[in-house]
Design a protein around this nucleic acid. Sequence first.
DNA 1: ATGGTCGTTTGACGA
Length: 276
Amino acid sequence: MDTRHSIRADRGMVRRVRIATWNVNSLNARVGRVERWLKTFEPDVLCLQETKLADDAFPALAFEALGYESFHHGQGQWNGVAILSKVGLDDPIGGFGDGADPDVDARIAWATCGGVRVASCYVPNGRSLDHEHYQYKLRWLDRLAGDLDGQCDPGDDVVVVGDYNICPADMDCWDPKAFATQTHTSQAERDKLAALEAWGLVDVFREHHDADRLYSWWDYRGGNFHKKMGLRIDLLMTTQSVADATRVALIDRNERKGPKDDPPSDHAPVFIDVER
DNA sequence: ATGGTCGTTTGACGA
């Protein structure tokens, strides 16, 4: 077959790896949307958060039918993270890989996909600044930094993606003043993100959108999505080598739309295309 | 926006 003018063949020649992250707010409720999104966007790696499934309920066969290997770290009911890959999935770890006591929640999974060390993270929400859960959030981020340093070198190809529940800067929040007394924008949280950056990670989406007020999460309530009242909290933190090779970074905000009988997650997928 | 909505679930509670 003559494929000289085949867009498919051309795309094959531009070797790229598409890496995506999406908090699906229950995979049971969203599996149809995830399958559809995989078919449309054909990511090489998709990291999921808030699957809210036990491991034995994870629909691995549905993803396998679309060409994806998968690894799920769940607990049932709440939390739960996964990594889907069609470029290999090696050395998976459910939870922190630091050998210390298991986390009380299923919030991180690791795997190596196509030579890239990948972490899918669901950072604790924190609830409120005076809540114990906020201290758990800060400790969790410290532990993430330690786990990252234990497994990876800043010179490696590494992506630590997911729902960070942190706005990196005020421009990532629809109304910083309204959040001044809330979680997600506090200095202590941003300091933890800064520690990851000091180690060698880059907020690669922001590098490609230096002045855009774009969000990845909108509260279900009050029509916030339509009022552009959102936060950018779903981040792809990558080492410099990955950031340097990233050609495109996008939020698929269309995926936040949908009818009552096919409701969206409150988060939109975010992805990067990395040239190899 | 101090919840008007979703998800877990059939009680509130978490986000």
